[in-house]
Write a protein that binds this DNA or RNA. Structure first.
Lengths: 196, 196, 196, 196
DNA sequence: GATGAATGAGAATTCATTCAT
DNA sequence: CATGAATGAATTCTCATTCAT
């Protein structure tokens, strides 16, 4: 097992394996993405993965961490840059879909993992996502931009709508993400704003 | 393999196995719901399932068909009873969540199957669901009740919001479905209606 | 997995597998006695063992239980039939070696398991053996037949001498067990008896 | 592979690795003492061991040789210093147990190796031990100090009693070795001496 | 019709060993 | 000399499916 401070070559291998794992997850789905198949994709021996990650759980965790970092890096700055809650919510939705456009395979891999590890450590991931979103919603209710909805229900609806997209894209890879983005932002703008 | 016209006993056996498969799927999750475990739950031999259904795929298909029939039987009459598209959409959402309340295990089983059989025959199921929903949306746009949104995008958002609920309920079984129902109907009422 | 009340055929298979496991353990040693090799010896598929025993641990446990039952069945009556502690101790040693003569492979298998499962559940087996032997020693000290030795130390010595025999027999299969038996009984008779 | 005449550094490395292998064997047991783990204990690369010893077998052999040398160095002088066979036998037993007290880990490592390498080259080790012990026994029979027992049987009993101790100590590390030593010497003094 | 024992492929993981750096 | 990443075979175990009874 590698020591805690990883060498350069070690990191390169890890990155390569993570990439192949993402491809395998996105292409084959969680079930079929076995260690052996990931290794075959990476053109390495199956033992190498265990050597670098200690086991499948660690590999999956590394994949999740990697993709979440990617996503946070893309989305958080865009959301933080907004000056109103309404704009932040729009940026939230837009940056989510933008992430899908730029990093489709990593996102699909992430969704595969989260959906399949039912009692695993990634149900917490979903709770975190909802809590983060609720902060934006709370902001808008504090400022009076948003109407007086139930935050948790609204968060479930927004995230549900967003999370439906990757699954939809698996079956319909050529669907126009731009139209979808416009419509989703409109929907939740109408649904959250304080009526005149 | 049994002939197409099944005897009464044959049907009873199939129904019993389907019920046990639903329980196994909902309780154990897709991954753990092996033929052996389903058979043990049903207190029958694992061979019987293969005998009656030909294989696991057929069993899963039978489960899906059964649950969809249950859902359609509950939801369609309620939706058809409405006289406006807006009321129909509300009834659509309400009856979906009502189905969750009344048949939680069958619904969870259905969700498990759809989520896990990625390239299986159930992506079609999702397409059907979207198409059906679009009929309601089209109705509302024809009558002028609804604004001029993209139907497919709106359908994805509505179904995504609804489909997020069972997954959420797995982690939070005691969440108040009533409040959620009220909020979801409000959200999509606001999101679809023609602005004054 | 088989139900608790086993069928006749089930029991026969278990017995066959246990026998083959004993042969594999005695012939190949603990390390080399893998499930695959045991299965090959029994001319069955490796999955069958897991099917009947649930796993390697259960198989080993079944082997131990089987051999211990064999041994107890042979030895306990002989020991219980004695009227003095000295005679009981002699019967204890004799019946132990007699068991080796009659059931060499089962005994070697048992020794292999006990020696290799260092922190496993069979160190308790050793403690049990010592405690049982101490009962005989205590009896002799109570009646005054035996001198005032430390029971635990004496038990370790007696069991150590007995347990050395199977290991010795592996390397020297043709050694005269009769002479050994006579000598061991003499040794511990002299070592335990109250001096005149 | 290094040439036969080893450099000083080479020897130091070997000694360090042997020590770590002993610790690994005693702490983890034979099964768990893999090359990788031994290397980790020694804070070196696993390849180094193969480099210095050629393979695991050679490493194990080096461990055995080292411990046997340690043991012989401690025990032989004490035994040789005695003027009667009875005293030599007592010294034999005492120095064996003294070795356990002073070098518990090396001894446990040795026992682990001997027990697990069944058909390996260490059954010869046991034969050597028995032959050496028989020299003492023969001495006593020649001088008439000892009664007319079968030497091989007596040797098996004595060594068996001694060899049982390390195994016992693994489970009961705090057992009083002093009492045990006293009792073992008494037992075999009584068992060997010529009756009055 | 029903049984349940058997199959054999595939899963994750560990291991001693090798070799380019 | 030393490294440590890579190998590939071996391990235990699970699974959907089959078939003699």
């Amino acid at each position: 097992m590698p020591s805690e401070s990883r060498t350069f070559i070690e990191e390169a291998r890890r990155a390569q394996i993570i990439d192949c794992a993402i491809d395998a997850l996105a292409t084959l789905g969680y079930q079929q993405a076995s260690m052996t198949k990931i290794a075959k994709l990476a053109k390495i021996s199956p033992g190498v993965i265990s050597y670098h990650f200690g086991g499948k759980d660690e590999l999956i965790k590394a994949v999740v961490t990697h993709v979440v970092e990617l996503a946070v890096g893309l989305m958080v700055p865009r959301i933080m840059a907004q000056t109103t809650a309404a704009a932040a919510l729009t940026a939230y939705i837009e940056s989510n879909l933008e992430f899908m456009r730029l990093h489709r395979n990593p996102l699909i891999a992430l969704v595969e993992v989260i959906l399949h590890d039912r009692d695993g450590p990634y149900s917490g991931q979903q709770e975190t996502a909802l809590t983060d979103l609720e902060k934006v919603l709370d902001w808008g209710q504090q400022t009076g931009e948003f109407r007086d909805f139930d935050q948790r229900s609204m968060a479930i609806a927004i995230r549900g709508a967003i999370d439906a997209v990757p699954t939809y894209l698996i079956s319909n890879p050529d669907y126009d993400l731009g139209a979808l983005t416009t419509e989703l932002t409109t929907i939740f703008s109408l649904a959250t704003r304080r009526p005149a």
